[in-house]
Design a protein around this nucleic acid. Sequence first.
DNA 1: ATAATATATGAGTGTAATCGAATATAATCA
DNA 2: TGATTATATTCGATTACACTCATATATTAT
Lengths: 112, 112
Amino acid sequence: MVLVVILKALADENRLRILNLLRKGELCVCEIEAILEITQSNASRHLNKLKNAGIITYEKKSQWVYYKINETFVKDNALLFDYLNNYMDNNSQFLKDLQRLKEYKNNRITCA
Amino acid sequence: MVLVVILKALADENRLRILNLLRKGELCVCEIEAILEITQSNASRHLNKLKNAGIITYEKKSQWVYYKINETFVKDNALLFDYLNNYMDNNSQFLKDLQRLKEYKNNRITCA
DNA sequence: ATAATATATGAGTGTAATCGAATATAATCA
DNA sequence: TGATTATATTCGATTACACTCATATATTAT
């Protein structure tokens, strides 16, 4: 069932933290690794799971793979997406991650 | 993280099917067993998981335990609940279960 | 008191999911 | 070409999950 696949993909703290970051725009794998302090293989795996559920899409640009939220998914699951948005905007863990994202973006232009 | 607990509790087909039935009102364990054709221990365990996530509550009435959706959860997670409601109202599997619920209610007053 | 019914839970099993470390692959750069 | 970087994937270990069968507990009915 599609709904189960979506909910399973969302039901993981690391994947929710990734999604939280992607709300602010596309990111490559190594940026996600650095900001969330998770291993490379883990980041890649979680992104793959979100992609397989249709929640995010990716685009390869030279050696980097940029992941972003799938706008079709957002349209098709607007209420769910609004719920997550609202939850993340009011949760300290997610806000902390967004702060780290901002610092990361201010300090570095490229990856690693 | 509370959100992960909620999403994990929802990320299972049997539990979603139970929740779908409970949208129409409270039910005891043996009614759920019969309508969804799942084993008694399975029904009980899934209900327990939904209860631990705060999604449902229960009330013991003589030998029966009636489970129902937790109105506080609905208020606190309105967008998520609306999303699920909408999804279930448009999914044939869930609609089929509701049909079975209706037939069950028409044919029997008590449990088993 | 005994039997029957409703529910919860323990034990065991098989399968899913998660993770880190290592390796494979592809692209870039010197 | 050879070294470096970014990403995906494989492997092995560990843990979590869902399920069935059997048992325990509580309540009701006879």
